[in-house]
């Protein structure tokens, strides 16, 4: 049943996600052609850097437009998949169909989570590729090996462990943290919609509360260890800390991972409980 839910979920969200990301690719290709002909093929930057104010305005507008398009693609993907789709499909009129299917609440959560995560990852990859594809030329490619080796060699100084170890571990942490972040939103929606009134307001209120608790825990951890914490939900990173070294990397990494895992697991269990035992469709 999970497979069928995932199949139908993809079918529903692809209607928005595919055109959105095709649009992103199209904007990238058009932008690339524009840059290719105006900038890269004009070593003297004659056209762009000319004193003609209209070229300057046009280019500035195009860059703003491109940045907005990138943000829009990422924001729409996040908001639509993590919030709107979950709420609309399970807690509004469509919920009458979804919740009368012979399917467990956990299958609903997993199907939404998996489809959401796949698209969020695709979105991140496409956004990175878009920036890369738009601006990279031979000069940058030639400079890339040196830049990368510099990044790798300076990684231990900043984070306390080698890049080969640190980068995969941070990627894992970001993945766990993303999943946990999505589950928190699901939990807030599921709990908020079990109330009789002010369902959306309650959902938002619960989200604010959970975020605050998480931030406080991170702050306490930072205060104790003296590390600088970058908190997106529960991500604490030892970077730019006064106390570098492998021990601190591991301490912050394990703390962040445990906080993310705990938040995610508790959110999942609560969402499942409220969708199984406290469902309250209007």
């Amino acid at each position: 049943m999970l497979g069928k839910l995932i199949k139908n979920e993809f079918k529903a969200v692809n209607r928005l996600m595919i055109p959105l990301h095709l649009g992103l690719i199209a904007v990238t290709i058009i932008g690339r052609f524009y840059l290719q002909f105006t900038v890269f093929n004009n070593p003297g930057r004659a056209v762009v850097m000319s004193d003609n104010i209209w070229f300057g305005l046009l280019n500035a507008t195009l860059i703003v437009f491109y940045i907005l398009a990138l943000f829009a693609a990422a924001l729409i993907t996040g908001i639509y998949l993590e919030i709107i789709r979950f709420r609309k499909n399970l807690f509004t009129d469509e919920g009458y169909l979804m919740h009368t299917l012979p399917v467990t609440a956990s299958a609903h959560i997993w199907s939404k989570l998996i489809v959401c995560l796949v698209w969020v990852i695709v979105d991140v990859i496409l956004v990175v590729l878009s920036v890369f594809g738009l601006f990279v030329n031979m000069d940058i490619l030639r400079a890339l090996p040196e830049g990368l080796s510099l990044m790798f060699s300076s990684f231990p100084e900043a984070f306390g462990v080698s890049a080969g170890l640190g980068i995969p571990l941070y990627l894992l942490l970001i993945l766990v943290d993303s999943v946990s972040g999505i589950l928190v939103i699901y939990m807030c929606i599921a709990v908020g919609h079990s109330f009789n009134t002010h369902k959306i307001l309650s959902s938002v209120g619960i989200y604010v509360g959970v975020t605050m608790i998480n931030s406080i825990l991170s702050m306490i951890f930072s205060a104790i260890t003296g590390m600088v914490s970058y908190t997106s939900m529960s991500l604490t990173v030892a970077a730019e800390s006064t106390v570098n070294g492998p021990a601190y990397f591991w301490m912050s990494w394990i703390f962040s991972l445990l906080l993310s895992l705990a938040t995610g697991v508790i959110s999942y269990l609560l969402a499942n409980y409220f969708m199984t035992k406290k469902l309250n469709l209007e």
Partner: peptide, 9 residues
Amino acid sequence: IKLLNGLLA
């Protein structure tokens, strides 16, 4: 009817 269908607890 909604109780019978599990849409309300």
